[in-house]
Design a binder for these strands. Structure first.
Lengths: 349, 349
DNA sequence: AGGGGCTATACAATCGATTGCAGAGGAAAT
DNA sequence: ATTTCCTCTGCAATCGATTGTATAGCCCCT
């Protein structure tokens, strides 16, 4: 009862049990080489392996083959309500292929992210999912390139030819603007995401294009980029906009957390949502349907994003194929935080 | 520019660069054996390693030493708002010790959990954090025992002598009951968690003890265990209680998600919270302060839980010490979903 | 009957780091 | 001056699975 030999069984023991050489056992257990072994022998080996509960040692296999059946993921916050479901879906898809997900959380520090890439590379990960990448000259991405690691970006794009799975950031933000315009809004301000992030840039572009398409002006100072995707940062940016934008009737935010911060700013300014001002978010995080008022936002397909990213990465790993960028459509979820502008504001523009 | 030899540096190359034998290089780079090497030689080796950007190959190291610097975690849902912050904190603490966290998500399937344990064991994890364990004869726990894997339970207790880090489930639920009693409630029902889970059982016990301590009766049928920690399950259980418990003025729920379901049930029954009925939760998930009305709940120290679990596990791994169970205090967070009972209901009991 | 061709298996090298053991060299002690 | 001891370094085995190569049969054909 002290330490009852918890040493696990290895290939040699299986081979002995089946009365063959380890190399034969190896071939019998590997579907790609099984045809090299006589059928009855293969069966005997497999049976012996099953009886003994054999599992190939991952370290030895990894050392010999160079592949680890591990995939690394870099995320800015495991508990982030946007990335958590993406990770969950990716992990499930990878697991079905025998891969496990090694999650590293460097926060918002790009240097730390590059350091984690080195660590993951030393662990011989077969590929990497990157959700931390910023738009220009990201050190983590460079570290992957340097080592020739298959890489897929998730919910972030990295520019020139980097495979990625993203939602239609521009189109999603345009949906929000069109919705507000449809309700009669003309004076709309934008709480933007951090500029170095693709979501920040693209959603801002989506805002600008949709406003232009609706024939609406964006006065200078009506776009304010938050310094990070956080509630406090959203409040700060929204507070700025509320004082700076006379007659503003709607805030289109680049992200749900920013929208929550905008709620705070509006409440502190004594504005009711949506009676005095409308607010929209982006991402449709869990539970934003429960807040008061329920948040009108853009739904992005988190699960699908994770699944597709895993699929693309596995393709790249197995076939070495150069994966392209996949843009998934997002949709408007209309709830209680958006409504018609206050009386008399409709015809202002 | 095709494939510029992304093969990484190994120990032999470092040794050559420093003009020593690989074994000497190994000793020079390992702090535990460095004293066996002459100081100037050790320095030369370290410098060479730094210059070449050497990282020991994890697979080879793991194969030789039997340790992988990997820790597995089994959680029922990566995106679960309770476990995600626990995982994040644990990952950070482990990372500081050179360990990485390998997350496996078997959902609620105990057989699948045991299968994942086998897979993680084959990957030679140094230890396991278990957040999926049910109270009696859990297969995953048995699988760990069988292999002699160091194990710490998180937010779950497993009975007899299994190391665990949990919050004070009984005490937390008692806080909620005392709060309600203090407001004047006498007729309180309990929406319980799943019975096979320690949180389900202990919080129910906490409810019963606190009611007894307050001199209050629990009529038969005033406790209803939900089949899972979910909003729909909470609504089902709460609906049952609302029809079954005449004059009930408060629902003490075992979990925030159940409380959200209770909100749904109350709304469908035309009851206003907290004017007609009070509702309390447990866990203080992110964003429950934003719903309407903001949820009164019990705050459990997620981050600390993850951190302490990691610490205990590392102790067990390094020193082989038998870790005990750590019970962390939780606190009441009073918000808008609890208030005095409707007029005339105070003196009913 | 003997050789060519083929199949199925065994042998042995290999991946990269760690570690028990042996031995070289120098210092200290008698 | 020789022995003893100690410090440092090199040698080689090892962890467990995979895979290139060699060989033992066997069948078939002429």
């Amino acid at each position: 009862m002290t330490t009852p030999i918890p040493r696990s069984i290895n290939l040699r023991q299986v081979a002995e049990e089946a009365g063959v050489h380890p190399s034969t056992a190896s071939r019998a257990l590997n579907s790609a080489t099984r045809h090299l072994v006589a059928a009855p022998v293969a069966e005997r080996v497999q049976e012996a392996a099953a009886r003994l509960g054999y599992r190939p040692d991952a370290a030895a296999m990894s050392l010999r083959t160079g592949r680890s059946r591990l995939v690394g993921a870099l995320v800015p916050g495991i508990a982030n309500p946007v990335f958590a479901p993406i990770l969950a879906a990716a992990a499930a898809a990878l697991s079905a292929d025998g891969h496990a997900l090694l999650v590293a959380d460097p926060g918002d520090d790009p240097e730390r992210a590059a350091e984690f890439v080195a660590e993951l590379a030393a662990r011989r990960v077969d590929g990497l999912l990157l959700a931390t990448v910023s738009l220009r000259d990201d050190p983590a991405l460079a570290a992957c390139r340097l080592r020739g690691l298959p890489t897929v970006l998730v919910n972030r794009s990295g520019g020139e030819g980097v495979p990625a799975v993203v939602s239609d950031d521009r189109g999603g933000m345009a949906l929000a603007v069109e919705h507000l315009v449809g309700l009669g809004h003309r004076r709309i301000a934008h709480v933007g995401g951090p500029a170095p992030l693709s979501t920040g840039l693209l959603r801002r572009e989506g805002f600008e294009r949709a406003m232009a398409a609706a024939g609406l002006d964006i006065p200078p100072g009506w776009v304010e980029a938050a310094t990070a995707y956080g509630r406090a940062e959203g409040e700060a940016a929204a507070t700025l906009l509320l004082t700076r934008c006379p007659g503003v009737t709607a805030l289109a935010c680049a992200n749900d957390l920013l929208a929550l911060g905008a709620y705070d700013a509006c409440h502190r300014a004594g504005l009711r949502i949506p009676a005095d001002i409308s607010v929209t978010g982006h991402n449709d995080m869990p539970m934003v349907d429960l807040i008061e008022p329920p948040l009108t936002t853009i739904r992005i397909p988190h699960e699908r994003m994770g699944r597709e990213a895993a699929r693309l990465l596995l393709e790249r790993i197995h076939q070495g194929a150069e994966a392209g960028t996949l843009v998934l459509a997002s949709g408007l979820v209309q709830r209680g935080s958006s409504g018609p502008p206050p009386d008399g504001m409709t015809a202002t523009a």
